[in-house]
Amino acid sequence: MYKVIRYDLRYGVLEGWRKLLLAVGMGALVLANCYIVFVSLSLYFTGEIWNFGSLGASLGDMIVLGLGGNFGRTGSGSTSSFVFPTLWYLSVLFPCYMTLTLASDDISSGGVQIMSRLRGRGRWWLSKCALGAVLVVLYYAALYALLWLVCVLMGFSSSAVPNEAIFNTYFDVVFVASETTPAALFAALILQPMLVTVALSLIQMAMTLIVKPIYAFIAVAAYLAASTLSFSPALLGNFAMPVRSSAIGVYNFDFLSCLLICAAVSAIAVLAGWWKIAKTDIL
């Protein structure tokens, strides 16, 4: 079993390295967004366009501004507004796309040779799940590494703690949890989106054993979009939005619940895929 996981991780990651360029593309989008926001904040705070140094921005700000998600519908009555968090949405969909055809492509090509050598479909499936999870983690690692690098080059703080003034101005919501620990913020900003994306990718991969990959992708995309409108914990996207995390404090999507729900969803996806692949005819 371990040999095939090693095989898949080594060659699956090497073979799929081009897909990881999506993380670089996502990083570029986040940086472009941050640039626009920082220009307007710089103008607002200092009256100068490019006085970014005086903003006191951090890595946490870049993540929250670019990948934070939204607070849902804010305001009331005729002043209520809803802004779809496009960047956050893409940041979760990209890794889902990366892992979309890992199982379905392999099953109709070289996977047959691997399965016959393993004498088991389930072991092959577990290996694909491991590869999918690793690719998602690598995607986020590459994305955050890029943002961190730009932070360092720009002279921003590499702390995960967002700047309260920037946060309050940008979101028009009071930053409640100013006492939140860096560890809690790290979990909210970095770990929660990763865990949710791993769970969604596994569910999606299991779905591709039943329906065409495009339908699985559409289902995940629709499910994720629903998270931007509703605050139900049944919609995992809520846990992947840092601004809705308990660390930020406006909503209460906490890390422990995220961990438990994502572990349960991932386990269900793995078991469902195991069950399905055992019954599937490989044509």
Binding site: Y11, E15, S108, G110, R119, A278
Partner: peptide, 23 residues
């Protein structure tokens, strides 16, 4: 049947063989 649904020691060439293109 079940998890051991393949013969123990088998070499297989069925229809078009498929391998990793970049290797």
């Amino acid at each position: 049947v079940g998890e051991n649904s393949f013969p123990e020691s088998m070499g297989l060439l069925i229809e078009n063989p498929s391998f990793l293109k970049s290797y």
